[in-house]
Computed example of a mutant assay.
Amino acid sequence: MARRRYLIAYDIADPQRLRRICTVMEDHGVRLQYSVFVCDLSLAERAELESNVTEIMNLAADSVVQIDLGPTASPAAIRTLGRPRTLPGAGPQIV
């Protein structure tokens, strides 16, 4: 099953919805910054994530941005300035 790396950022207006979205994101990826996650997802996992997030969001007030960084075997580079960040390792991971 092909996996792709996504950079996902969110802006959630309500603190209760924000906590719920954060929990969903923590289940699917690695926090890069406060509301930014890196997620290595199969097509089915991405669909599940989108469904879970959409159920929680207020579509008129909140936003979630997904940036496709490419296949996990060779994703686009992420560079950081300042304090280094831990990114998901390449290949399958057992959680």
Score class of each variant (00 low, 15 high):
1 M>P: 11
2 A>Q: 13
3 R>K: 11
4 R>D: 07
4 R>F: 03
6 Y>V: 08
6 Y>S: 03
9 A>F: 12
9 A>P: 08
9 A>Q: 11
10 Y>N: 01
10 Y>D: 01
12 I>A: 01
13 A>P: 02
14 D>A: 05
14 D>F: 06
17 R>H: 03
17 R>E: 04
17 R>M: 02
18 L>H: 06
18 L>I: 04
19 R>N: 08
19 R>V: 07
19 R>Y: 06
21 I>L: 11
22 C>D: 13
22 C>I: 12
22 C>A: 15
23 T>K: 15
24 V>K: 01
25 M>E: 03
25 M>I: 06
25 M>T: 07
26 E>H: 08
26 E>P: 00
27 D>I: 04
27 D>C: 12
27 D>W: 10
27 D>S: 13
27 D>V: 04
27 D>M: 10
28 H>M: 07
30 V>T: 15
30 V>F: 10
30 V>C: 11
31 R>D: 03
31 R>T: 01
33 Q>W: 00
33 Q>P: 01
33 Q>I: 02
34 Y>Q: 10
35 S>V: 03
35 S>D: 02
36 V>T: 10
36 V>K: 09
37 F>A: 02
38 V>S: 12
39 C>P: 05
41 L>W: 09
41 L>E: 07
43 L>A: 14
43 L>I: 14
43 L>D: 13
44 A>E: 10
44 A>S: 12
44 A>Q: 13
45 E>D: 06
46 R>H: 11
46 R>M: 08
47 A>N: 07
49 L>A: 03
49 L>R: 04
50 E>T: 05
50 E>K: 06
51 S>A: 13
51 S>I: 02
52 N>G: 13
53 V>Y: 00
54 T>D: 08
55 E>Q: 12
55 E>C: 09
56 I>R: 00
56 I>V: 00
57 M>D: 02
58 N>P: 04
59 L>Q: 13
60 A>I: 08
61 A>E: 14
61 A>N: 12
62 D>R: 00
63 S>P: 06
64 V>I: 15
64 V>Y: 01
64 V>D: 06
66 Q>L: 14
66 Q>Y: 13
66 Q>F: 15
68 D>C: 09
68 D>W: 02
69 L>M: 11
69 L>K: 05
70 G>E: 08
70 G>H: 05
71 P>E: 15
71 P>F: 06
73 A>H: 11
73 A>G: 10
75 P>K: 06
75 P>Y: 05
76 A>H: 10
76 A>D: 07
76 A>R: 14
76 A>K: 15
76 A>I: 10
77 A>T: 14
77 A>E: 09
80 T>G: 14
83 R>K: 13
84 P>A: 04
85 R>A: 14
87 L>D: 00
87 L>H: 02
87 L>E: 00
87 L>T: 09
88 P>S: 07
89 G>H: 12
89 G>C: 13
90 A>W: 14
90 A>S: 15
91 G>W: 02
91 G>L: 12
92 P>I: 15
93 Q>Y: 09
93 Q>N: 13
93 Q>E: 15
94 I>D: 05
94 I>E: 13
94 I>W: 12
